[in-house]
Amino acid sequence: MNNLPGIAAGFFTGCCILLGILILAVMIRTILGPKVTDRIMAINMIGTLVMTLIAVIAYLIDESYLLDICLIYAAISFIAVIILSKVYTERYLADKADEKRLEQEKEQQKEENGK
């Protein structure tokens, strides 16, 4: 542990508690979010807040290797958001392409019936 004076230790503990409350609030938004985009955005925010929490704890217990974990956590959170949004974008594009194809087939059938 770091030999911090009482005020400093209390301040950092207060930071940790506030960040924990904020993470809980964002988790509620993740559950409530009406759209997929809301949820992915909230996941991104949870990643940011957890990273900040890790940085504070790294100073509080005086273990600077936790900052490496912080960096890796940032990278993994970023990759998760990128992959989720890519996958959902392609999913919606596939749906739109299917709708287009079905409309074209219907029009072709109508023309054939008309002839």
């Binding site: 940085a55 960096l71 940032a74 990128i82 949004s85 890519k86 974008t89």
Partner: peptide, 26 residues
């Protein structure tokens, strides 16, 4: 910590851009 700031200032706009693209498409 400076590396963390630099990484976030590059990564966060990219993630926001992709999310906006998903929202506009969907």
């Amino acid at each position: 910590l400076v590396l963390v700031i630099a990484f976030f200032w590059m990564a966060s706009p990219a993630a926001s851009h992709l999310l906006c693209q998903l929202e506009v498409f969907s």
